[in-house]
Design a protein around this nucleic acid. Structure first.
Lengths: 216, 216
DNA sequence: GTCTATAACGCGATAGAC
DNA sequence: GTCTATCGCGTTATAGAC
């Protein structure tokens, strides 16, 4: 039993090393520019060994996403320990995702139609964590809409999707590449544009848009 | 001269047909899922003929982007004929891009690192149009910041990038896929979340965030 | 000559042999 | 763990049809 445990530990360590490499490469180059050969070269193992752990390139990406989702879930659980208004909790989560992006640790995957999307929605570990995270964020969203700090005219899913989308918004990469703002400034800018919107004087605008939105 | 003109016309018509097919396939399946074989099958020409017009798959995508940028420029020029506040002009442009998306005519390209990005920034026709569009939108953005309808705390480029990013925001696709909102409702929802932000009561929030943003 | 059809080459993902 | 094979796809080259 000690041997088995040891062997399993070795496998686990290797798997962690693979996922770490994949995560870094995905953040650097994106899914299509990352080749499996790069991964095995980076980890220092043979291609066949990698395919013992993961059955496809898509599985590799899914493992990296599972990793960041676990980190996100841990961050959310940590935030739940501290009492704060729902809006502030959501802002803190958004801030955390931007920090991950700025640290170069957010995998960049094609968000639209692709074989990868299909593989992800079919991936149980990924979907379980995504749904759990959605549930946790959904609580804050509904609480925020109830206490008036979040727009109740917007369907809760829209708030959820928008927050998820900001976790890989290309605008952050553009600002980072421009190089004229500090990381802290970029985060403040994007939090403001996301939660506060682009325009001032929301009253008239919100009233005008509410007409149709309410019909949902 | 008539012969040359006729031949050129034939080439032009074929090129238009190619770009139209590419545009549709890009909107349907995205760049990586679209194969060159599909394109030639759809147009009904031989592969070699296609490569006479476009030297690579990336060039095909660039041609499709040039097409939508030309449509966008035409729409902006049309809007400039009609007097309206800068904020309303920008909202109208954002609305137009969402209509294009909902009509299934917006090419979906990987927005992040990829060979395609490199090809696009090196593509003169694409970059010329993109810069021209940026200039035109920039005028409205600065005017909107000057008249107080757009947040002056945000750098103008941030507003520009954010509008561009909304033109291919995955949130629209998610709402469309959910199927529970009409096209008009989706547009109103996204305009509100983009220009109005997710939260209500922007005063305190804006004041808090402005501290650091201003340091830029 | 220009189009079409088809084959061929390179590269990367995947799988199996040793 | 290395090596080799296959397959898909982008790309190029070849050969035939009008």
């Amino acid at each position: 039993m000690a041997k088995v445990s040891f062997r399993e530990q070795v496998l686990q360590v290797r798997e962690d090393a693979i996922v770490a490499s994949v995560n870094r490469l995905l953040a650097e180059k994106g899914f299509d520019l990352m080749t499996v050969d790069e991964v095995v070269a980076d980890v220092g193992i043979a291609k066949a060994s990698l395919y013992k752990h993961f059955s496809s390139k898509e599985e590799l990406a899914a493992a990296a996403m599972v990793r960041v989702l676990d980190l996100a879930l841990a961050e959310v659980e940590r935030l739940r320990q501290q009492p704060a208004a729902p809006l502030e909790q959501l802002r803190a989560v958004a801030r955390w995702t931007m920090q991950v992006q700025l640290a170069g640790e957010m995998p960049s995957l094609p968000s639209q139609n692709s074989t990868l999307r299909a593989a992800l929605v079919a991936h149980k570990g990924y979907m379980d964590r995504l749904l759990r995270l959605s549930d946790l964020l959904g609580e804050w969203i509904e609480a925020g809409q109830a206490d008036g700090s979040l727009r109740a005219e917007l369907p809760p899913e829209v708030l959820l999707y928008t927050l998820f989308a900001r976790a890989c918004d290309p605008v952050l990469g553009l600002l980072k590449a421009a190089g004229q703002y500090s990381d802290a400034q970029i985060i403040d800018i994007l939090l403001l544009s996301c939660f506060g919107g682009l325009s001032t004087g929301q009253e008239a605008q919100a009233a005008a848009a509410t007409k149709r939105v309410r019909k949902a």
